[in-house]
Amino acid sequence: MAAMKQADLAGYLNFPNQDIALRCTDVNVDYATERAIFDCNCVFPKNKITALIGPSGSGKSTLLRCLNRMNDGRAQVSGTIDYEGTNLNDQQINVYQLRQKIGMLFQQPNPFARSIYFNLAFGIREHQAISKSELEQRMREVLEMVDLWSEISGDLQRHANHLSGGQQQRLCLARTLMLQPDILLLDEPASALDPIATAKIEANLLALKKDITIIIVTHNLEQAARISDYTAFFYQGYLVEYDRTKHLFLKPHQKLTADYLAGNFG
């Protein structure tokens, strides 16, 4: 295990500072009984898709949840996570503002059991006074971004429960986009969806990355290879290797990475 403590970071060390969206320094995460992340140091480049891969329990979702403070109240996070010059892990940070800028999408589609309109209006109305026309204009924009506008024929009053699973997940994506985030965190967003719905989400993400930095946890290695620019491999709470996706998949430096990619353990 000692060998793993120094992560193999061949792929990222030469980023200029202005291209970095998030920088984690010495991040440790402790649950009540065990440590889930050990001394994680890594950066997430702007306007790129970074995939976090690794077997179940490797800590990738835990790390993801640190990045917009979703671990508050369930785990102890230490270390610094730099976002635009401030440490977002600081307890003084306004988490409500932070989560507007750093949005999240979950494994299971979790729309509110109300209309599409309610789903999209809920977050933004908490944060700012917005006119009805401007609100509906933005709803249309985000629904078009996720290719849902035509599928629902522009009917904002349609009930979220009446959408298919894939449509629900895209509605959730649109819901976070309403807040115009800088960064999107995705926790296995397609693992509950069929291949066609997955492909639609992936197409959305590729289109979104010109404005948004995307960090995605996935168990689907093909998905990581298809859409991500960078990949980080986690194992038992350690960041083992981090590189450009094509380098990591084609020529992993670490034996652990190679074994995982080859399916020698899981």
Partner: peptide, 27 residues
């Protein structure tokens, strides 16, 4: 009411109390 609703609301930068008041309890 599924707990995922609470998580969804919180991830939108809304306080737990408001998610409770406007999403969980109405449901």
């Amino acid at each position: 009411v599924p707990t995922s609703r609470l998580e969804a609301g919180i991830s939108l930068g809304v306080s737990q109390w408001h998610v409770l008041l406007k999403v969980i309890i109405p449901e």
